[in-house]
């Protein structure tokens, strides 16, 4: 589903990702672990196509398409979702309006008709309920005044509504208490299917107890230095990055 070859990404003059290879197949859940500054978030942003994150060489293929030739929103149309480490506040725009615009943009890209207001409301209420989100939060402005946990939960609702083929979740577990972590993990597990894939980006093993990955990668200084099964995460937790790599 996702095939990254020899990827180099620079931000400004600085090369952050330095020749990264990664293949994720449908039905798989991968986790990339690494310390701060290893280039994990840069990798995620580059896959999503953020401006100023320049891919200097290498390729990203998703569903057989060259992602680097697509605009960020087109990548979303192709079925990519990026869960943000720091979800952004958009004052004056209600969650509902934001979600509906997002969903309809994606549908338009795919040549599908807009979803009716009634259908949409039903879908959102259902997804919000599954993630224990207070329906009142849907009316509030996007992430404005949300706690850290609420923001992450909101990301999960967005993911559930957009139903991506590949979800890249950047530090979705950070700043969550145990209850919120469990809810978020449930949201991720619901999204795990034969036809979807998940890429978790995380510091800690904690989330991986609830969302068990098929493959764990260790990222250091812009490269994946080691890959293994879920036991690798535990090993990292125990021994630290220096020893494992």
């Amino acid at each position: 589903m996702l095939n990254i070859k020899d990827l180099h990404v620079s931000v400004g003059d600085k090369e952050i990702v330095k020749g990264l290879n990664l293949e994720i197949k449908a039905g798989e859940t991968h986790a990339i672990m690494g310390l701060n500054g290893a280039g994990k978030s840069t990798l995620a942003a580059a896959i999503a196509g953020r401006d100023d994150y320049e891919v200097t060489s290498g390729s990203i293929e998703f569903g057989g398409k060259d992602m680097l030739a697509l605009e960020p929103h087109e990548r979303v149309g192709e079925g990519l979702f990026l869960g943000f480490q720091y979800p952004v506040e958009i004052p004056g725009v209600s969650n509902l309006n934001f979600l509906r615009t997002a969903l309809n943009s994606v549908r338009k890209y795919r040549g599908e008709a807009e979803m009716s207001a009634a259908e949409f409301m039903k879908l959102v209420r259902e997804k919000a309920k599954a993630l224990n989100m207070d329906p009142e939060m849907l009316k509030r402005f996007v992430n404005v005044g949300f706690s850290g946990g609420e923001k992450k939960r909101n990301e999960m609702v967005q993911m559930a509504v957009l139903d991506p083929k590949l979800a890249i979740l950047d530090e979705t577990d950070s700043g969550l208490d145990i209850d919120a972590l469990k809810t978020v993990a449930e949201g991720i597990n619901t999204q795990r299917r034969k036809d979807t894939a998940i890429l978790l980006i995380t510091h800690y093993q904690r989330l991986l107890s609830y969302v068990q990955p098929d493959v764990v990668h260790v990222m250091i200084d812009g490269r994946i230095v080691k890959s293994g099964g879920k036991e690798l995460a535990l090993e990292l937790e125990e021994k630290g990055y220096a020893d494992v790599a």
Binding site: A45, R50, E71, H73, V88, G92, S105
Partner: peptide, 30 residues
């Protein structure tokens, strides 16, 4: 208009102009 807001909107499937329109409409809500 913040890069973060733009990227967030675009990472949810909004085209560049759609994203600007949404952020600006939010800004003008009051």
């Amino acid at each position: 208009i913040s890069e973060d807001q733009m990227f967030y909107c675009r990472a949810r499937g909004l085209g560049e102009e759609e994203a600007v329109a949404m952020i600006v409409n939010g800004f003008c809500k009051e």
